[in-house]
Amino acid sequence: MFIPTRRALLAGGAALLAAPRLAHAFPDRSLRVIVPWNAGGVTDILARAMAPAMQATLGQPVVIENRAGANGGVGAEAGARAPADGHTLFVSNADTHAINPFAYRRLPYDPQADFAPVSLFARVPFALMVGPSLPGVTNLAGLLAAARARPGALSYASWGVASASHLSMERICRAAGVEMLHVPFTGQAPGMTAVAAGQVDAMVLPAGGAEALSRDGRVRILAVTSAERLALLPQVPSLKEAGVDLVTGNWFAYHVPARTPAQVVSQLSTAIGAVLRQPAVVEVFRQQATTPEATTPEGLAEFVRDERQRWGDVIRAANIVLE
């Protein structure tokens, strides 16, 4: 018969007392969420919509920090170099974790070695819109006809060279056999503004942003890039319906610096899943034509591996190499 010693009893009691303290030790101060894009774009909108619910769930203030530049690379470097304690989260997407590694000769961060996956949180379909510089273009066939008539004369905006916006429009042009001039901006919002002002002819961007901009008639949405029509834009055909057999879009996820304790990563992943079920958050996502979706850290890692292969193929086909 085993009879525990006084030392064993004391050690066991200490372990039981320590477990709750470890579980509640994180977070012990405010959390920083780095958004690698300008304020006003869909990434910023969704992150700010989630922040109050994250604060309520985790019990600490959540501060959004916009660090735009280099197709998300400036913010990614800041996220990679942050302390690995879970108090800094980085909003990743296809650009930062699946495109940049193939588009740039050198990156100031390693998407795989410098980050630990936490959870996916959104899938984002795109829309193709035109502005007042093309008053006679009312559908995709009209845009493509105008582009064929003047090769390289029509322009399109993006939120950066080799961004998901740029590459998606490049894919549309290649599939349709047309040539247009690419005009990169430093974020989604500046590109949208340029199209609405008639300074640039067209843009592929998240469907929610295009829908909001189209309400006053300044821009016209020609197609969505999802497999089917969107509930937010039921009158707008998909690219396939409009004659271009292509599906594209973006996604957003949370990563933390590598070597963040697994217990903290798990706690953050669980919290994000809870946040995405909050009605106020779901409504903002609906308004942005965006689907909330949570994953485990392992699920996100597998998802990003697949995305790297998909976008890597696109980069190689476009022969894009950046310094």
Rank of each mutant, 00 (worst) to 15 (best):
T5L: 12
R7E: 15
R7T: 13
A8V: 13
A8C: 04
L10P: 04
A11T: 15
A14I: 08
A15M: 12
A19K: 12
R21D: 00
A25E: 06
F26I: 05
R29D: 05
L31G: 01
P36N: 10
G40L: 05
G40Q: 00
G40V: 04
R48T: 12
M50H: 06
A51K: 08
M54A: 13
Q55M: 08
P61K: 10
V62N: 08
V63G: 08
G69I: 06
A70N: 13
A70K: 10
A70Q: 14
N71G: 13
N71W: 03
G72F: 03
E77G: 10
E77P: 10
E77W: 05
R81W: 09
D85W: 00
H87I: 03
L89R: 02
S92R: 10
S92T: 14
D95N: 14
N100L: 10
N100M: 09
A103K: 02
R105C: 12
R105H: 15
R106Y: 11
L107Y: 03
D110T: 12
Q112K: 14
A113H: 09
S119L: 03
V124A: 07
P125M: 07
A127F: 07
G131P: 11
P132H: 09
L134M: 07
L140H: 01
A141Y: 01
A147Y: 01
R148T: 00
P151G: 07
G152N: 03
S155K: 07
Y156G: 04
Y156S: 05
A157G: 06
A164T: 15
A164I: 10
S165K: 06
E170D: 14
I172Q: 03
C173M: 14
A175S: 12
A175F: 02
A176I: 04
V178W: 02
M180E: 01
H182K: 00
V183W: 00
P184C: 07
M192A: 09
M192D: 12
T193M: 13
A196P: 06
A207M: 09
G208T: 09
A210R: 09
E211Y: 12
L213K: 11
L213H: 10
L213F: 11
G217P: 06
G217K: 07
R220F: 05
I221K: 07
S226L: 08
L230E: 03
A231T: 11
L232N: 04
V236E: 03
K240F: 00
K240M: 03
E241I: 07
V244E: 04
V247Q: 12
G249Y: 02
N250F: 05
W251H: 10
W251P: 02
A253R: 06
A253Q: 05
Y254W: 14
A258N: 07
Q263G: 11
V264P: 01
Q267E: 10
I272S: 02
G273D: 02
A274L: 14
V275A: 08
F285T: 00
Q287S: 00
T290I: 11
T291C: 09
P292T: 11
E293Q: 15
E293N: 11
A294T: 04
T295L: 06
T295Y: 05
A301Q: 09
E302Y: 11
V304R: 06
R305L: 15
R305Q: 15
D306F: 11
D306E: 15
R308M: 12
D313T: 14
V314T: 10
I315L: 10
I320S: 04
I320H: 04
